[in-house]
Design a protein around this nucleic acid. Structure first.
Lengths: 144, 144
DNA sequence: CGTACGATGTAACATAATTGCATTTAGTGA
DNA sequence: TCACTAAATGCAATTATGTTACATCGTACG
């Protein structure tokens, strides 16, 4: 999602040591303009040099815990991962293609959500909001 | 979510025969004011009389396909199920407690989403929109 | 009746993610 | 430099959730 981000800096800001594997995972997540599944990320990394599937899961968990990466639920069974919102990236909604599983980022302005009233009155603690559109993407629609 | 709904009627409207198991599943889904996981539904049904886990999954799939029940993704690994929006039930956002897994329905007005522009310009086919807040519910927050 | 088809049960399988434990790596002080 | 420690990674097994294949049951209809 970002070529302005320095991945080692993102890690050190999050108080995480910049191991080779962490940087590799973060590069894959960050250099894509759309979120990927753990499997996508693993497969991409394996093409270059070996890494363990579990290591990928663990690094993703760690990055999510430290707010570097965002875990996004889909209309399917696997989570997808993208860079967490930060000064360069506003929170934004996603589109999930129920046919091919491709997930796309939508522009922050495409869907405006007013949650001011909600925040004022909700008795629990709010961590994040997720807005997702499910449907059939342009490509899959054309094929049918 | 609804005591105004006649479950046999919902089934026949969806052109589904009203088998005992379908009615039982739909009662559990419909009589709760919050969405449940397939496991929750199965456990509840098993308390009364025997039903197979797979049957529950199949009935839920069927009801989702026919628009009677809505499949809702959570911040966790399992899907949750609630009555699909209909004349008695507007679409509405949900709150998911990352600690206890409880999912609650929020009022349709609590979060207003303007997607008019998006619908006009998006090149794919839109099936549904999901808005979910993740956080810690009041109960879990008090315990900590 | 009997037959045909939809509904259900059962076991096996598939997928995504997690856990336990062994091994490797990197950093730190003697 | 070496030894020690803690963190990071690898590997195998396990868990959680959901799906498939196929057998059986039940019911509507000729």
């Amino acid at each position: 999602m970002c070529h302005q981000c320095n991945y080692e800096e993102l890690l050190s800001n999050a108080k995480l040591s910049a191991t080779n594997n962490r940087i590799r995972v973060l590069e894959v997540v960050g250099n894509n303009s759309f979120p990927l599944s753990a499997k996508d990320i693993f497969n991409t990394l394996e093409r270059n040099s070996s890494i363990n599937r579990v290591t990928v899961y663990r690094i993703l968990d760690l990055l999510v815990d430290h707010g570097v990466v965002e875990r996004i639920s889909t209309g399917g069974r696997a989570f997808y991962y993208g860079l967490a919102p930060n000064s360069h990236h506003e929170p934004h909604p996603h589109f999930y293609c129920m046919n091919c599983g491709q997930m796309d980022c939508l522009s922050p302005e495409s869907l405006t959500v007013d949650m001011d009233d909600f925040i004022k009155t909700f008795p629990g603690q709010i961590e994040k909001m997720e807005v997702r559109i499910d449907g059939i993407c342009k490509n899959c629609g054309n094929k049918q």
